[in-house]
Nucleic acid binder design. Structure first.
Lengths: 213, 213
DNA sequence: AAAAAAATGTTGCATTTGCAACAAAAAAGT
DNA sequence: ACTTTTTTGTTGCAAATGCAACATTTTTTT
């Protein structure tokens, strides 16, 4: 828990102090366990400390729709997602998963004797929210592209910028990527093939090299 | 400016005090004027006080791509969007537009004598960010739908939930809606026609009624 | 080490969608 | 009140995409 970005810059003893002060709670979940459901009224903010999870819903046929994926330092909670209709949306652990949660309101309306820890905590929370906003903006930017090719290239260029190299390993499986880009997996595979044929990329599985002309 | 959600719960005199303390700056722009460009290093946070604006870029052909639209209480800034490649992205006023801006860092690392105003300001800022996160989540949820029909229905159901009625007026033009859903306008029009033919909706222009079976 | 499960790669085909081009209506500007 | 611009509505056609079904490879589990 001390490695969470929420506590970056904290001394271990101060983490404990703050945890007590904010009434932070912890939860450990195994794969496929439900961490929380979007229906409760109290406004808790959840932070993933370790492991992975996803926000998903199952329709009447049992088909799963994944809305969002979470990893270390991801945040989720009632104020970031509101379900539409009667479907139940829940966050499931996709691997052994540790989360912490606290009342959003308590964290913001910190007690009168605002200590350095509180300030830093808010600062960190702010940073995490900004990063989420940025990640979502990027996702929207990509989803807004009209063709599979444009989506793919845009995504790959982002990975290139992040990794700082023309050659990189995709951070997720190709099937997950198809989900993220919201396109059919086989159609994506076909486009990858075309990009290879046209010499725009060289790829084998998750290993991809962008060729600049 | 006193009507901005950032200052909700504030007395007028305290707004002035805080504005001075944070070094808040103001800017008035006419339609089509550039409010800011995503290239400067200083991390300013912008809040729209009145009017509308959009984040857009022009490619070599002069085609405009709109990434995001802003209205009262929308926030934007370097930490929420990072341009990819050499293209220049800017925020343009789409109507006469008032914005305020301040250094992100100054707002978070507020001075030692944390007054009630500071706290409330941060509180409001968090709320605005949460709302933006929620709006983006919804947008992603819709963009992730695979067919035009699913996108449309999902969007309309959101409007229905917000308005609380099966009958409503779209909050934007049909062309803008096609942009928002990232689909071809004429294809959307065709789908609207089909939905009418099948008795799923009754619509004429922006006036739409959802028929529940 | 073997078996089971998940991910990758491929293809034909039907369907959906985007594109282009236009007419009509509505809204905005002068 | 008139003109210009934007929005809405429509259609044929070509192209892109999703779907289904399968073989192959890789990864995970037992």
């Amino acid at each position: 828990m001390y490695k969470s970005a929420l506590f970056s810059g904290f001394e271990v003893s101060n983490v404990n102090k703050l945890v007590r002060c904010l009434g932070v709670k912890f939860k450990n979940c195994n794969t496929n366990e439900i961490i929380m459901s979007y229906k409760e009224s109290p406004e808790y903010l959840y932070v993933v400390l370790s492991g992975t999870a996803e926000l998903a819903t199952y329709d009447y046929d049992g088909n799963k729709t994944v809305l969002e994926r979470f990893m270390q330092d991801s945040i989720f909670g009632d104020m970031f997602f509101k379900p539409l209709g009667a479907d139940e949306f829940s966050v499931f652990a996709t691997s052994s998963c540790e989360v912490m949660y606290f009342r959003y309101y308590d964290a913001i309306n910190i007690c009168e004797n605002v200590c350095k820890e509180h300030k830093r905590f808010l600062d960190n929370l702010f940073m995490i929210m900004s990063k989420k906003l940025l990640a979502q903006s990027r996702h929207i930017e990509i989803l807004t592209k009209r063709t599979i090719r444009e989506k793919l290239i845009n995504y790959l260029e982002h990975i290139e910028a992040e990794s700082g190299s023309f050659s990189f390993l995709l951070p997720m499986s190709l099937s997950s990527l198809a989900d993220y880009l919201s396109i059919d997996r086989s159609a994506m595979q076909r486009e990858i093939k075309h990009l290879n044929d046209e010499g725009i990329i060289i790829s084998k599985g998750k290993k991809i090299t962008l060729i600049k002309k």
